[in-house]
Amino acid sequence: MDFQVKMFARARDLADADSVTVALSGSCTIADLRRALSEQYPALQPVMTNLLIAVDNQYATDEMPIAPQAEIACFPPVSGG
């Protein structure tokens, strides 16, 4: 299954795209998504452990499954204010 992942800040710069497509086969958890992102977008690999994943506007933990229509985003720790 293909997932669209929105990218922000340094993650977007490294991926060189506002949004990337990630192909997942079999299990579809956040951990699987992280692995696939690292494989399919190697520029993200060095920082992947620091990147945060959000699903439908909520922070997601690695064991969470991803629903097919979920809105997914990937970004570094936040620094607003």
Partner: peptide, 26 residues
């Protein structure tokens, strides 16, 4: 807000470099 709201700042330093500010990865 500074902990959880997804907003990021990019520094434009006086030495000509730029860098996203990404605090600890907690």
């Amino acid at each position: 807000l500074k902990e959880v709201v997804p907003i990021w700042k990019k520094e434009n330093w006086s030495d000509g470099t730029t860098a996203w500010v990404h605090p600890g990865s907690g």
